[in-house]
Design a protein around this nucleic acid. Structure first.
Lengths: 332, 332
DNA sequence: ATTAAAAATGTAACCGGTTACATTTGCTAT
DNA sequence: ATAGCAAATGTAACCGGTTACATTTTTAAT
């Protein structure tokens, strides 16, 4: 393996000059720079980034901790992360945690051992036993936040989005609006539920806890939740699922029970995954700026890593209500 | 930052002993090992992996080059890669190439600069101008292969899968079977098309090139392809799409034109993405062992990296035909 | 008790860059 | 021509581990 010393020998200069010709070419004379370039070509020299990074005590790698990389929403976020990271000269390390705390902890050690400069976490669990300053463990928490004031967080206006969606349903005449929520340990569940309640309250509709059923963000859970819901005497006329997958599962279930969407029951989701526009009927949902989550996370994390000023205020991104054909005016 | 020398001083031993206590504990006496452990705890020492890897000239990172991380099939493959890599002590670097050759080339340099030990490529383009031995650029090509005999490749039996699927359609009585193929520069297109032809030939059905239309693996392309297809005088009775996304787009289009699936036209896809079981009607398709692709790729790549024996034979994985409700007996 | 062999430990070079500091070279002004 | 300064280059230490080789300690055998 040719190294910088080989190049120096060929060019007839010192290793320092070769190093400078590469990293700070402006301080090297034109003549010398050319000599070095020729020598580099002749030697077939490729700088050893590990050596460079080791010296600089930086890995130039960002670690992404994601509960499930196969989730289409997370995929888009990661796509945004990758693009932004690449632009800034960082590489992206992938950590699929499957929601498992052990794996999160394990991956977090990569920062201690200088294998990653920082972490972007896409789920709501702080990976250490106690919170340390972000300078010590550079971390940005996005999409689903654990609400620690010391940690930079980027989140959708989940309350506002849920409220807007439910308001849309109410405007269509719906009063009995069911919810398939997420797991109770997810902060998304709480904020979307509060948005739901807020919309009901504004319209003077009473909250009925029997209309709220559990889900876990999978299509299968949406499917099974509906069976309970429609077995009841008094059926809801609309159904708000806390993500698109559950809505898709719910629609399948509703149809197989002999009902129609939206004629018998309106269904709405959350996320606007690619498929939402292709299901039958196309899904009314909330669009999230997935790639923007990734981009902002990278920018904030890089600021932290490089000791720049950054805000510990939670950053809130805006949503868009996408009305498609899965919701319609109530028909009696 | 506490380093190995600090620990050595505290423990009252040499740096070599500390290093050995960590990497080859069996050659260190019990007493010394304990002393070192205590010193490590006292110093709060975390080994610097960059230094270790630098010395070993190995990054212990595998680079995954994927054309589109948001593709649900690729997501599953990556999930399999991540799991297998983690088990073997490798981390996973993500390179989203968006099918762009420049980005592939750029990422490939990470191996030259020792930022990655090898590459798993999920698309069919060799990233260098000319092929070099895998020992020089450790690379494994999976899912969609460029057919270079020197490069280890793992692929589905695409010909056999397409043939089995078309045979299934023929057995249901279909004779006019349309195809929405992929881009012509993808080897998947050729092998799946040849499987289609083989099935037709076995059934003595003539090949009609007017039944084959272009697609690009997106839902939108499946949607628009159908419009051309059904505008014709003599409609096909079945449609084989080269992936599930296009099939989903096609189904939407078919329905919006007033036809029913499968009564008027049977539709089949390829990949068995999670959604295939939840669309309406559920999609007949080919299941690919996505995670297994990832696992085998990691194993082969690690063998190459570590100089072990490996096969340059193309490895072929088996598929499964999943018959759901989007295909049915022809009705006339 | 003595010695040989084995086990444990220490010393120091090494990996391939970067960079503080020292030195040399080139340029300008008198 | 020469001092004075800036620009260019060189020397060598340093980053934090690993490991070949040398040395010391322990164990086993006579």
């Amino acid at each position: 393996m040719t190294n910088i010393r080989t190049v120096a020998k060929i060019a007839g200069v010192s290793v320092a000059t070769v190093s400078r010709a590469l990293s700070t070419p402006d301080v090297v004379s034109d003549k010398t720079r050319d000599k070095v370039q020729v020598a580099i070509k002749e030697a077939g020299y490729k700088p050893n980034m590990m050596a460079r990074n080791f010296r600089a005590k930086k890995s130039y790698a960002l670690l992404v901790l994601v509960p499930d990389i196969a989730n289409p929403f997370f995929s888009r976020v990661i796509s945004g992360i990758e693009e932004a990271a690449q632009k800034r000269g960082y590489s992206v390390l992938l950590g699929n945690t499957r929601g498992c705390l052990d794996r999160e902890r394990e991956y977090t050690k990569m920062v201690d051992s200088l294998q990653a400069d920082g972490i972007i976490q896409l789920s709501a669990r702080y990976p250490l036993d106690k919170v340390v300053p972000v300078q010590e463990l550079p971390i940005v928490n996005i999409c689903e936040c654990f609400n620690l004031p010391q940690i930079p967080q980027i989140e959708l206006d989940n309350h506002g989005a849920a409220k807007a969606l439910v308001k849309h349903l109410i405007e269509l005449g719906h009063q009995r609006i069911s919810v398939i929520k997420g797991p109770d340990d997810s902060p998304l569940t709480a904020s979307r539920l509060s948005g739901y309640c807020a919309a009901l309250e504004e319209a003077n509709i009473g909250f009925d806890e029997k209309l709220v059923v559990d889900g876990d963000f999978t299509m299968a859970s949406g499917h099974s939740a509906v069976e309970k819901l429609l077995a009841r005497r008094e059926r809801p006329t609309a159904l708000f699922c806390f993500n698109d997958e559950m809505a898709i599962g719910a629609i399948k279930s509703i149809k197989s029970l002999g009902f129609n969407v939206p004629e018998d029951i309106s269904v709405a989701g959350f996320d606007d995954i690619a498929y939402a526009n292709y299901c039958d009927p196309p899904l009314t949902t909330i669009e999230q700026p997935a790639e923007l989550f990734g981009k902002q996370a990278v920018e904030t994390l890089c600021d932290i890593i490089n000791g720049k000023a950054f805000s510990t205020e939670k950053s809130t991104l805006s949503f868009e209500l996408i009305v498609r054909q899965s919701t319609s005016k109530i028909t009696i």
